[in-house]
Write a protein that binds this DNA or RNA. Structure first.
Lengths: 227, 227
DNA sequence: AGTGAAAAACTTGGATACTTGTATTCAAGC
DNA sequence: GCTTGAATACAAGTATCCAAGTTTTTCACT
């Protein structure tokens, strides 16, 4: 019965994996805000398992940066300082820079066509923040994957995931897509040139331009106090 | 009684932390070789605790790249493919590049003096591989810290830790220090110029030169088969 | 009424018990 | 003699239980 439903909605391999997915989804979509306390027992009850796998999920989320475990005082959704957010953008910028540099050497006409396609889809999904973020990430992810570096993609994905809640808050509030589309078009124009160095520089700048804007926004949000 | 012994040999905050330290130390010094099976119960017995905290340590080590958890089949010390090792060097090169770029803007005469000091200590510890690796990392770590970016330093530290066993194998076998010292001297000469862009380029190259050498060495070791 | 200590209530961390899945062994068939 | 399959042994995953630490409440005293 179990094995026969291979085409059904994939059920998680383990309870720990289920808890991990449950939590990471809710953190990334912003349902669990930074600073929220995570009581293992409560979550375990909600998804029908014991505390143990939830705790293990906490541990993984902690090392990935989504959650902060305070010894003997439980876990909270990580509330990053502005400095940390700045750093995360800086790190992402060099890693995505590396990814395009490697990608630029490998792309052909079909890959360029696909990138244009993803950009078009981005443009058409300007209505709500969720759609836009999904398509925006699809564009970036596609480019990163072209580098052919699995590990690198994984690291970038992780960083992006941690930043996503903040990006979402910003997009939801400021509705930036129009200008952002232009920025991506220019980026793509450089990538098309297939010049690794130029592509790298362009990507770095592209990733970094949003950082100060988001941080300023978050600072205003919190009244200038700590994030 | 517990709180009073603050100056005594720091005992780990939790059993999980102890298990983590125990494992990471043994992996990094090469006592636990890639591919070694890690039985939770066995390790738990050895350091006097139950399986649970050990399992949690596995989880953390897995996301950090030291250990690989295979569902229902236990944990092993990660046996990285050559491609992964290449990637790890590439990632480290851009991150350390970012670190020196930021550091170059902040250093003064005293920091430069300290770097020369660390380099001198490196030179004097050429006898055994352990010492050399420790001092080599001290040099790199000092530069990274000058960037003033905590998170960045943490990520670089992690990558370095994962690569350390392979670096150790290589050093132990090939005894490269003499040429490596020269390479570091040249790197330092560029950093002294306090030109962020040049420092970044130099560091990137510096980190990347060792990658193909180590990989070729590992390939010979394993008879050209997979790592 | 406000402050502070003590205790109760709650939460986390760790150990043990139990269930489920994987590896090994041995026998039967090809 | 090698492959295949069932039985058994073993290890991993999860649940429950107990101990230790933290937060909150209560109550006495200033």
């Amino acid at each position: 019965m179990r094995k026969l439903s291979a085409n059904a909605a994939r059920e998680p391999a383990s309870a720990e994996a289920e808890a991990y997915q449950y939590l990471i989804n809710r953190i990334r979509i912003g349902e669990l805000r930074p600073g929220t306390r995570l009581r293992a027992e409560e979550i375990a009850a909600k998804i029908g398992m014991s505390r143990m796998p939830v705790r293990e999920a906490f541990r993984r989320l902690d090392t990935e940066g989504y959650v902060t475990i305070r010894p003997n005082r439980g876990a909270i959704v990580t509330d990053h300082t502005f400095e940390e957010i700045q750093e995360l953008f800086e790190i992402r910028s060099v890693l995505e820079g590396l990814a395009v540099r490697l990608a630029a050497e490998r792309i052909g006409p079909s890959e360029i066509e696909e990138m244009h396609d993803l950009l078009r889809r981005m443009r058409s999904g300007q209505k709500n923040a969720d759609d836009w973020l999904t398509r925006h990430w699809a564009f970036h992810e596609y480019i990163c994957r072209l580098s052919g570096r699995r590990r690198l993609v994984r690291e970038i994905e992780r960083l992006h995931g941690v930043l996503e809640p903040y990006l979402r808050l910003w997009f939801f509030h400021a509705n930036r897509p129009v200008i952002a589309i232009k920025d991506h078009q220019e980026l793509l124009k450089v990538i098309e040139m297939r010049n690794p160095e130029k592509a790298e520089v362009a990507m770095r700048e592209h990733v970094l331009v949003t950082a100060p804007q988001i941080i300023r926004f978050l600072q205003r949000q919190s009244g200038g106090a700590q994030s």
